[in-house]
Design a protein around this nucleic acid. Sequence first.
RNA 1: GCGCCUGUAGCUCAGGGGAUAGAGCAACGGACUUCUAAUCCGUUGGCCGCAGGUUCGAUUCCUGCCAGGCGCACCA
Length: 580
Amino acid sequence: MGSRTHYRADSRTHYDDYDIDAELDVPLEVPKDPAHGDFATNIAMVLASRAKKNPRAVASTIVENIDTKGTYIKRVEVAGPGFINFFLDNKAWLLEALSRALREGEQYGRTSYGRGRRVQVEFISANPTGPMVVVQARAGAVGDTLANLLDACGFSVEREFYINDAGNQVDLLGRSLEARYLQEFGIEAEIPEGGYPGEYLVEMARDLIREKGDALLPGRGGRGGRGDHRGPTVRSGYSGWGDDDSYVPESWRHRFFARYAVEKIVESHKKVLADYGVHFDVWFSEKSLHDAGAVEETIEALRERGYVYENEGALWLRSTAFGDDKDRVLKKQDGEYTYLAPDIAYHRNKFERGFETVIDIWGPDHHGYIARMKAAIQALGYPENALEVLIVQLVRLIRGGEAVRMSKRAGEFVTMSDLLTEVGKDAARFFFLMRAPESHLDFDIDLAKLQTQENPVFYVQYASARIASIFRQAAEEGIPKPSLEGARLDLLGEESELLLMRKIADLPEEILGAALAREPHRMTKYATELASAFHVFYTQCRVLGNDPELTAARLLLVEGAGIALRNTLRLLGVSAPERM
RNA sequence: GCGCCUGUAGCUCAGGGGAUAGAGCAACGGACUUCUAAUCCGUUGGCCGCAGGUUCGAUUCCUGCCAGGCGCACCA
């Protein structure tokens, strides 16, 4: 809530005393406290300051002149320092909202706000040099749910994962794997400086030996070397390299190790993400940009628009033209591109694919790139706000009340896969979405594992289980599934029933608000509030009772709550269990 | 030094120019002959980091300071 709508008031009433315009904006808001009405306005206080009069007196004058005949307004009051609170005849529109939820079912909560406009959400984009870590799990939850929310608001959304499969680090990865491979044969070899010492490459080297034996030792595996003139090949869904490495002459050995490692790691990323409930529409290879000449093309495009110049043997982007602190190097003195160059080409490619809005979710170490990336897309002629960057802050793992020490250099870290194995998808996603993306997050592993009331995800899921349980019980007692037609929903009037209906009614606005503010974490809060409203209702109102009409009406309310809850959990990527 | 994020209850955190600042957990006290007590009800708990400023009104906006985290490359 906190949503604020401005209504145009035309003042047929007696505002002349206050010397104000005939038309003014009247801000209406939904008060946090229901005792303050269904809507409230602070207009009297705004006017009072202009008219130098007592706000409460102004409010009283206004209220005396409001005509509520023939409206849904039941009561108007002056309260506090000068608020005007409006109380609606709630029941009518709450019942209508419930009916709507029941009619729309899985579609309930969706709106057509986006009218099919195309939005891309790019997230995680972990380097294919090692297992994904915990912060990437957080980015995954945020990105996936944000995409779900935008989809629910009628945008045409694509999820994309960018694979940095070109450049120095891939070469280092290949040489690291090669070292592990050689070590398995007892050959002395060292992980290169800046390489990847993690245990996962030892395992990968063993897999490789199981597949290819010693064919990759120096001097082996060439054409005709061992009767198998095709030599090793790689099969996977990922094909950034094309399919041209049909044999492995000496000069290609390094490329093979790099390619093998990247493909295996991307495969493992896909598997972990599938377990996490995240599915990407596009896996975009950086290498494919280079192969297509997109980097040169992009630099050419920038040059034509006058934002590229040469200095001290390097090629620079004039990003200061768009507010960046300093200009940035695109091509180094040694002729190599910086990271920025292909990244600009990548973003150009995104816009060429027709996205109206591109949302990137980055880690905190990249916040310094926002200014230059936004400068770059403007230099290419795209509007500054066509690119939005969300920074997801770091995650600190807490175990036994203490921060888990991780050292990437030593290759010791808790991977995303470890975390999922330990706490499960539901707890992980829910926990990551309980915090605003930009706030630092302490992830308490012990708490996430608890199957007790201390764990907030179970509170929400328990509501789902209880709902299912009621319908199981009803079926056992031979109570027919109620239909909306002819149902006496008007029998619902208990306070807890009305509060539950209000929560159900809020869902579409919650989804829209969370999507437009890019704040997916609002939905865990909503889920908790909805579950709470249900638990209170459950405690206070017996559903399966003696009065068939009341029972039917309450079953419909329970079904409506279930619809709202399941739809919310689906957006979060958390399961809605029928039994716990 | 510069930049980004964060300082709110014992803990983890929402919120946000207005009404008595919220939730969960923790602590304490209650509620199961009835659809799951993984629930519900109640109590305790707050210089909203500090200091100025703007405002009828600031925890919210602005400035400065303090504290914590992160980042500053012709690295990726």
